[in-house]
Amino acid sequence: MSEGLTWTVYDADTMTQAEIYGEVLCHLGDKYPNIVGLSADLANSTKIGKFGKKFPDRFFNVGIAEQNLFGVAAGLAKSGLIPFISSMAVFTSMRAAEQVRTDICYQKLNCKIIATHAGTSFGQAGTTHHCTEDLAIMRSFANMTVIVPADGIETANAIRECVEYPGPVYMRIGRGFEPKFYDNEDYGFKIGKGIEVHSGTDITIICCGVTVLQAVEAAKMLKEQDGLSVRVINMHTIKPLDEEIVKRAVLDTRRIVTIEDHNIIGGLGSAVAEVIAASGKGCAFTKVGIPDCFCEVGYPEDLCNYYKLDADGIMDKVREVMGKDFEEDEDWEDEV
């Protein structure tokens, strides 16, 4: 935990990820007078409004105007302030994509973008509000750091750390009702360092966000039911990716499944695949996520189940990958 901060998350059972974010930002506001907040008519929904209530002079609601939102944030950052900016993930990563890339990333500005309602967390709203592309987009912007906290506690850690972390940060959280994964904040969170949250030697699940809790449950059940030893890695930072922890998984388990509430193209799975491919080692591999389609409508639990992002679905996928062959060594010619 950052020095000088006495406030810890005391109520992660009833507070949503976004509420915790708002609360932590309020506390940081006391310590850092140069933090400012911005939203685009979503102050209440994204919970940055808590900061706005506490520091009305340091909060700017620009109305429903996301491109302006990120342009204004860039200007505030240029003037020496640290803007925290919140809107829904879909409008952040797509409506304002060029402002984020050109105004913020290109100029390496110290903007902290906390995007809510990401993935399928607002599933009932339909495609215009789903956001299963943001990791791919944000990951491709040079200078950008991309973080997907597993729950509210990890959100608190990530928010605290990113204040002092230089340059632009994109953090995606859900709409609200995600269950907590961590019991307390002292587990050694560090931007860019994946965390092994369940040990195992047969296969590795690499996941992020809401899927971490599900993956660990799947790992426990697979131990019980199949006697499988499943390693689970919480890859909360998608960029810069912790390549070492991926390579170690390749070497140790030779089977990897990635799980994310995002299109299987371009996000966590792709980032991990790039490391596996570059390692030159054989590894059975599957990406689980939204299979390159616009999602169905529905509540997040139903969609997680449908797209195999919950514990049951993850167990199926792990069993599938356990049955896959991979080339250990020289015999590549046979395949090609």
Binding site: Q124, A125, G126, T127, T128, H129, E296, V297, G298, Y299, D302, L303, Y306
Partner: peptide
């Protein structure tokens, strides 16, 4: 309306 696999999400498709 809004339910799983319904053609009707809050924002009509």
């Amino acid at each position: 309306f809004n339910h799983f696999k319904s053609p009707f999400g809050m924002h009509l498709d």
